[in-house]
């Protein structure tokens, strides 16, 4: 189900890309030299534009719309292992949604998803912004350091997640050993072995994964702020904090909106981090909606219920994707 979800997050931008290609098709016709000679043939241009859009739409329909629709349908079916082979599954109305709603795990999972998302977003953004402001100054090896910070983003999550799991080990893990030697703690922190700490541990890993993304985009946003603003403010006697709150933050607002909305979509659908670090355990304490959907579908083999949870996630992603598109549109409107 989470595979579908990954696509759900992408549907909106993909559709945006498709219309972008279509819109470009029409002026493309006008730019061509023979297009000028057949100026009255506007209909031809229309058909040509359609021909350009068609492949994109066919692609979207086959790889995004169809799986999404199948997942929505599966949420209303009693889909078992046998259904995969026979291709038929009885419709059961809202029974899957009811079963998930009454599952004692469900509330905890929703709360976990909210905490995981909010915690990840806030800290990723705060640290990413701090680093972006830091790297705005030029200093020796600044560029190298900035590139090194991208490493978490480039590593496959299965690799970094497994290493994090080892680092969090209770007795021999390097995280606890370091904290003990620095006398910051007196007892090993039960990172992955306590139902109270596991969500914190996976959230920390997810923050680490997300910082480079926030930093790079916010850094790009900072580059677009004219240096004169800061010079003028300095002449007016604004101190560093005032320059940050009165110039940097307001000027970064549009970019921040985009970063936060995209971050929200990634975090709600984050799966591999949790799966490699804690498997949603111990005792489902770090289970979010994505891992819960996986457990229902592929461990308990109740595919209808897994699809129901997947659909809830699709709904969430669609809402946030709409917010994202609106934020981008507002921003474009303001730029014109």
């Amino acid at each position: 189900m989470s595979a579908l979800l990954g696509k759900a997050g992408r549907t909106a931008p993909a559709a945006a890309g498709a219309t972008g290609a279509g819109a470009a098709g029409a002026p493309g016709g006008r730019l061509l030299p023979w297009g000028a000679r057949r100026a009255p043939g506007r209909r031809r241009t229309g058909w040509r534009a359609f021909a350009f859009v068609l492949p994109a739409w066919a692609y979207v329909a086959a790889f995004y719309v169809y799986p999404l629709a199948s997942n929505v349908r599966m949420g209303f079916q009693d889909y078992t292992v046998a259904s995969f082979f026979t291709g038929s599954a009885p419709y059961v109305g809202l029974a899957n949604y009811r079963a998930v709603w009454h599952d004692p795990q469900f509330t905890r999972t929703v709360v976990n998803t909210a905490l995981f998302t909010a915690g990840s977003l806030l800290l990723q953004f705060a640290v990413g912004l701090g680093l972006a402001v830091f790297f705005r100054r030029s200093f020796p090896l600044g560029g190298v350091l900035r590139s090194l910070l991208l490493v978490p983003w480039l590593l496959p999550l299965v690799v970094s997640g497994t290493v994090w799991r080892w680092m969090f080990y209770n007795d021999s893990g390097v995280v606890n050993q370091a904290l003990l030697h620095l006398h910051l703690i007196h007892q090993p922190v039960p990172w992955l072995v306590s139902t109270h700490m596991s969500l914190v541990a996976v959230t920390l890993v997810n923050i680490w994964v997300g910082i480079p993304f926030n930093m790079v985009i916010l850094y790009g946003g900072l580059q677009a702020i004219p240096e004169q603003l800061y010079e003028a403010a300095a002449i007016d006697g604004a101190n560093a904090w005032q320059r940050f709150t009165r110039i940097t933050l307001p000027m970064l607002r549009p970019v921040s909106l985009v970063v936060l909305t995209l971050g929200l979509i990634y975090t709600v659908k984050a799966f591999d981090v949790i799966m490699t670090v804690s498997q949603g355990g111990p005792a489902n304490s770090s289970q979010t909606l994505t891992t819960y959907a996986y457990q229902l579908s592929f461990q308990q083999l109740t595919f209808g219920r897994g699809a129901a949870v997947g659909n809830l996630l699709i709904l969430l992603a669609v809402v946030f994707a709409a917010l994202y598109l609106r934020a981008v549109r507002d921003q474009e409107g303001r730029a014109r």
Partner: peptide
Amino acid sequence: PAFRRSSCHLSNQFDQF
């Protein structure tokens, strides 16, 4: 624990970025 969806996740982030 080889769950290998991560590469998708990454390329996804790149596209969106």
